[in-house]
Amino acid sequence: MTNEVKSVSGACIPLMLDDIDTDRIIPARYLRCVTFDGLGEHAFEDDRKQDPNHPFNHTKFSGASVLVAGRNFGCGSSREHAPQSLMRWGIKAVLAESFAEIFFGNCCSLGVAAVTASRDDLDKLAAAIEADPTLEVVVSLEDLKATAGDLSIPVAMPDSAREALITGEWDYLGQLLSAASAVKEHAATVPYLNAFST
């Protein structure tokens, strides 16, 4: 099945900052849209403009598909535009010390692998990439490992999300629809939908 995400491999881009919020990933003015098209080019736009050395400004990282980040990545707004913009920029996996919950869920909805690793390991990985930006990183969801050259670090992901990606069943709409009759039966038991008489 084409939707299966068992591993992600490619070049890496390091952004070892903490508490990167979704306003920074995609500033709110780019949410004035009715499709997600074209969001990729605006990823981190304001940070990039203020910092010529921002990793997303470097051509050496421009083909990266794995983002390496710090603690609480994707905090703040629920905007799915944030993982959409990263995905459309080319990111297929985010490796971070931790994630904000809504951002993590949004990544799952898009088939973007959001996995965690220890800060020490992430710092090592970031250093290896800085030393050699062409280094290929393989994030294996089956083995729960990220490897880059001689470096191999353990990564983690909640079972439900991992299973969904590996089996390709991360498009949840179909699964939810399949329970439509159970949903209807359930609705008949909810007090506030039944004049508080149930």
């Binding site: 799915e80 809504i102 909805s109 898009l110 439900s160 949840y172 709409l173 939810l176 609705a187």
Partner: peptide
């Protein structure tokens, strides 16, 4: 709880979503 746009579609279509 706050949700993303894919979840909005799921809730529109089914009045449910998956959560842990």
């Amino acid at each position: 709880i706050g949700i993303g746009t894919s979840n909005v579609a799921q809730v529109l279509a089914t009045q449910t979503m998956f959560l842990s």
